Computed example of a mutant assay.
Amino acid sequence: MSSLTHRTIRAGSAYRSHGAGQSVQGQKVRQRLQTVVTLTPSPVVDRVYFFEDLVPGAVNRAFAVEEYLGGNGINVARTLTLAGNTTSAVIPVCHLDNSGLALVQGEGDLVRIVSVSAPIRVNTVLVSSGGSTTNANQKPGHLPEPEWRSVCEATLDQLRAMDADWLVVAGSLPQASDGHTVDLRWLLHQARELGAKVCLDINGPDLCRWANSNLVDLVKPNVPELEQFAGHPLRTVGDVVNAARSLADAGIGTVLASMGGDGLIGLGPDGVLWARPPKTPVVNTTGAGDAALAGFLSETCLDPGGPTGAHNRRTSFAEALARSAGWGAVAVGRSTTALGGLTEVPDVIVQEPDPVYRLGNA
């Protein structure tokens, strides 16, 4: 990968040029938008309070409060739709939850509702003008087996109807009757049988449970989740790369590891790369990882004729990583996870990882 040792990529260019051919290091490639079904097993209502200065343990006066429908899969679907991808978000909703149902209905055709008994959770987000974000996230509730089966069947129906490229299961998993989180095996197996690739963006313990199932093509852990999988702290980029390799060795095809302000590590069949966006003023970090995942999934670069060479595959992977890091950088500068647009996407440096670079290095 010497040609990608240090390369700046215009992360927003793919978003602005759907359907156009791009010349990538002398090779002509074409881009294809993706058809994606997301499942948010435990959606939330995000209530965001904005403060000039947030003082823990004191009475704080918010200068603004916003409320909207949240949840990882919903955020991913919104952003993919903004970029022109065909997307549907499956979400379980209690028909007696009037406030949550009203927010869901405001999403229009983006969502497919599955009726369940558990009300939508609440995520309270405290945002300080200094750039810190604090989340108080309600635990997922209990979902009886018949209701979970209905959610899975609705998701599979949506995959069939759309002939989807991807199934993305994102966010916290509800509790089953046995006290553990719901079982994903049947859903993931059926999705694979339908020809869809599977992406998991779920909590660390659940990610560890499904990492070696051989049913997952892509995962997007953050550093704390990778630390749970690795069993020790990750202090450098090299530590993150090694933990990502362990996930890949467990049977995951591609690992997209989020390192916050330090960018993203992408590890796939063609190697490992580090995408580094510029320093960005932070307004609200909630949903930045969802925007990054949407950026990675948004388009696939395909060789227009004959088998794709390793060099071409590697370049396409770099562009996907650059778009991922760029869209994540856009998200942290917005007040809510409903981005509203993908303008002013910054250029992103894509390079080979520096193993000794310390995370959080100023």
Results as ranks from 00 to 15, higher is better:
R235Y: 03
T285R: 05
D201R: 01
K197C: 12
V182T: 11
D163G: 15
A250I: 13
G287N: 04
N203Y: 13
W274A: 02
H232F: 15
A250N: 09
E147P: 08
V168P: 11
V283D: 03
P221K: 00
A161S: 14
Q228P: 11
I265H: 03
W210L: 06
D206H: 15
L267Q: 00
A176E: 05
P277E: 12
D165V: 08
E225C: 07
A248T: 13
T254D: 05
L218W: 05
P174W: 11
D165W: 02
D262A: 12
Q158F: 06
N214T: 09
A288H: 02
P269R: 14
T280V: 14
W274P: 01
T254M: 01
L234P: 09
L234K: 02
A154G: 02
A243L: 03
D249F: 13
H180A: 15
W186Q: 14
T286D: 09
C208N: 03
L184Y: 07
W148N: 03
V241A: 00
V241T: 05
P174T: 12
D239P: 00
N242D: 10
L218H: 05
P174D: 04
I252W: 10
A288D: 03
A288R: 03
A154C: 10
D239C: 09
V151Q: 06
G271D: 00
H232G: 10
A191M: 05
L256R: 06
P269D: 09
T280W: 05
R276A: 09
S150R: 06
T254G: 00
I252V: 00
I202F: 05
G238A: 11
Q228A: 15
S150W: 08
A248N: 01
G268Q: 07
L184G: 12
I265D: 01
A288W: 02
V240T: 05
G171I: 08
K197A: 13
H180C: 13
G251W: 14
I252N: 03
D163T: 11
G260Q: 07
H189R: 09
A196C: 14
L207F: 01
S172N: 04
A248L: 08
A196L: 08
V282Y: 06
T280F: 10
L207W: 08
V240P: 00
R185M: 15
T236P: 06
G238C: 09
R160Y: 13
H189L: 13
A250E: 12
R276D: 11
G231H: 06
A250M: 13
I202W: 03
N214I: 07
A288P: 07
R192A: 10
R160S: 12
A191R: 00
A196T: 07
G179C: 08
P221Y: 00
V272W: 01
Q190E: 11
A196K: 00
S213G: 08
L159P: 07
D183W: 06
D157K: 01
K279Q: 13
V255N: 04
T236N: 00
G263K: 05
L273H: 04
L207I: 09
